[in-house]
């Protein structure tokens, strides 16, 4: 058992936690947080899987993909938050109709 397997399992755990919160939480802000946690889990999985080498540096290709992924996920977060802000500004709600509002 080495460090790689610890991080692989952590990645799986983060994905499960993130998806659970994504479907459970009605508030837009918490959905964005859950989306980010899910993404972090996926990144961890990819990089941990690339580190399955006994000597030398790990595979750089998944590293570059994750670097791209981090930038795309911050863009998606910004657009999601901007849409949620606009929705709140126009309707006063922080969740979609049909799901319970918190306030």
């Amino acid at each position: 058992m080495n460090a790689v397997w610890i991080y692989l399992c952590t990645g799986a755990g983060l994905i499960a936690l993130g998806v659970l919160a994504l479907v459970r939480e009605p508030h837009f802000f918490r959905k964005v947080l859950a989306f980010n946690i899910t993404g972090s889990g996926i990144f961890l999985l990819l990089v941990a899987a690339a580190s399955r080498v006994s000597d030398g540096p790990p595979d750089p290709v998944p590293h570059a993909m994750v670097l791209t992924g981090i930038v795309v996920s911050v863009s998606a977060t910004a657009v999601g938050l901007a849409l949620a802000k606009k929705y709140h500004h126009l309707t006063g709600h922080t969740a979609l109709p049909g799901e319970e509002d918190e306030e």
């Binding site: 399992c9 990645g11 998806v19 479907v23 540096p57 790990p58 750089p60």
Partner: peptide, 28 residues
């Protein structure tokens, strides 16, 4: 339902990952 689904998701993922070969250099 959602708890069961996400718990299963985590376990299936972890199970599949632990089945990976322990050495893989990929495109390094």
């Amino acid at each position: 339902a959602s708890l069961l689904f996400c718990g299963a998701l985590g376990f299936v993922l972890a199970f599949a990952l632990l089945k990976l070969p322990p050495e893989a250099a990929g495109l390094r």
